[in-house]
């Protein structure tokens, strides 16, 4: 069958034709049995498509959605707690890093860098000292 005619038949079902095209199609349908059959076939197919409509998921779908949302909120609360801790401790961590950096720079500039402990200004420990201290 003529592709243009099939296209027009399909469009006619979706109100996609202007009045002139509708009149032309109606006159074709009045004289052509294959065109009529084609239109019926298209209508049947559209009806069959409507019949595949499934209007629900498995039972208790809404409850499963709500459980997932509750779980997401739990994760969000944990992440909120982590964020709050970050907010509280970030200034402390930045200040501590700054102080350490100042001590490092000071000790390096005064030439006192025989070991890492001395650079950081903390007491020097070695294994022997610890062992003697235990006795």
């Amino acid at each position: 069958m003529d592709k243009k005619l099939i296209g027009q038949l399909i469009k006619s079902l979706d109100d996609g034709l202007n009045q002139e095209e509708v009149d032309e199609l109606n006159s074709t349908l009045a004289t052509s049995n294959p065109a009529k059959e084609e239109l019926e076939w298209l209508q049947d197919i559209r009806q069959s498509i409507q019949s595949v409509k499934t209007e629900s998921f498995r039972p208790y779908f809404a409850q499963r959605v709500m459980r997932r949302i509750a779980k997401l909120q739990e994760i969000k609360h944990e992440s909120d707690l982590f964020q709050s801790l970050m907010v509280v401790f970030r200034p402390v961590a930045i200040s501590a890093s700054f102080i350490i950096a100042v001590i490092l720079i000071y000790n390096i500039s005064t030439g006192n860098f025989t070991s890492l402990e001395s650079i950081l200004g903390i007491p020097e420990y070695n294994l022997e000292n610890i062992t003697y201290a235990a006795y």
């Binding site: 409509k53 499934t54 998921f57 809404a62 949302i69």
Partner: peptide, 22 residues
């Protein structure tokens, strides 16, 4: 209000199911 959202899910389930399953 979780109960309200659950009601919303229940009301919209047919529409979403027909769209997604389609």
């Amino acid at each position: 209000d979780h109960q309200a959202f659950q009601k919303l899910v229940e009301s919209l389930e047919p529409l979403v199911a027909s769209t997604v399953i389609g």
